[in-house]
Write a protein that binds this DNA or RNA. Sequence first.
DNA 1: CAGCAGGGGGCGG
DNA 2: CGCCCCCTGCTGT
Length: 497
Amino acid sequence: MADGMLSLSWNNHRATFCHILATLREKERYTDVTVACEGKFYPVHKLVLSTCSEYFEKIFENTPCKHPVIVLKDVNRCDLEALFCYMYEGAVSVAQSNLGRLIKAAEVLRIKGLAVPDEPPISDRRTASSHHHHSSDDRSSPHPKRRRREENSHSHQGRSQSSPSPPSSPRPSPLHDGGDSHPAQRSRSDSQWGDHGATDREDGGMDGVADDRLGDHSTTSHSAPTPPQVEVMVDETLVKEEMIDQGDTGQEDMMDSGMDYGSVGSDSRLEGSAGGGGEEDHMLPGKYEPKANPSQQAIPEAVVEALAGPSGMQTWLGGGEMPSGFSGLEGYTGSEGGQDLHPPSQAPAAHQLVERETNCQWTGGRRARRDWQGLTSASRVHQCPHCSYNTTFIHNLKRHILRHTGEKPFTCPHCSYSTARKDLLKEHINTHTIEMPYSCPYCPYSTTHQYILQRHIRIHTGEKPYVCSYCSFRASCKTSLNSHLLSHKCEEGKDDM
DNA sequence: CAGCAGGGGGCGG
DNA sequence: CGCCCCCTGCTGT
């Protein structure tokens, strides 16, 4: 060693590195590839995938686009999440009963250390053997350490109690999982997103039923694991929707069955603000910071654009305009609760998968009312890929999808409030400026919100539009009626007893 | 009863 | 796309 040379060693380099990597994935920062599996999108980093799998490396080599989307078939979503955890953190906890399946998935993906022997980087060892020994040796085994990891608390503390994550997957991090929740008091939103995310997470739990598709693989002897069916598409390519003309009934099915991509939204966080959880994600109080990850928007945007196609028909991720060699997102299925996204020919069966009233908390009541008004489902042609919401106006769909993506570009200059809609921000700002644009014609009362005024005016007019269906009770506001209805419920309960 | 956030419908530019 | 409208749900007084 030359004289005067000092060896600077970062003792916690590995731990810090892994933690930051995991955090970056969690926050979907700098992700440059999206892996789609069973209807979920996982924004991850090429670097990490390439590092952990030559198979992925090869894919990226042959896919020079900026942000490819890799559609994995024959890989269970839970396994994939576990593998991501493994790749990012170097370890993952997995139920013994699921180990075989996980290893199978690792084999088809050629994950180093799990399915492929992990050769330590020789050159590195040569040059830095003195201080790397502790960090390189534990990765050289094809069998990972299997230990229980409880320190998942850094992600999603907010929802942890209501939605236990799968043991192997501290942070599934599906695309648009709910994104940036807002620290401001958002009890309702939080719970909404939280529920959403909880449902989703439960669905994705490791103790779920083993995926049959993978099960097939598991039963075969594995001399040379067959690569998974992978489809790569570039985000520059519009996801084209194909017309699914199933008549009215088909459309009804389409609408009633929810698409569940996971907590999209959520922070599911998508939270978003709606997200409930993940306050730690909130880094930009007071001003809008575009999401660092373009992919986060890429897919929904693409979907939206596709939805705007001239046909105006419900369409989905068919393969019509895929680059040659790619057949489309056949593997892009709704989660177990959602719809399989199949080419049109297979669509009808796919839409029967689920009968969730609505996966989207925001649409249910409204939708019902609209249907009463005779606006039948058949007339709504723009279908949200995340939930059962659909609308005749592409503009509305774009706005709606913001709820799933969690994007909130409009931020209040006076507080940390942010929203996806400019008009909502405008109303919110009124609460700061004490501007009361809505004045009561009957009294000096004025308020910040139009509907509040309307509600108030009913006091003067005596209008009671909310009628009890059990008795002659009428109320001027919905809340009063709801309270009243509770009394009927109580009476029913007594009668039952 | 009011305050507030935020959902969707839909019109007009 | 901006904006307005109507509405729901939750919360607090």
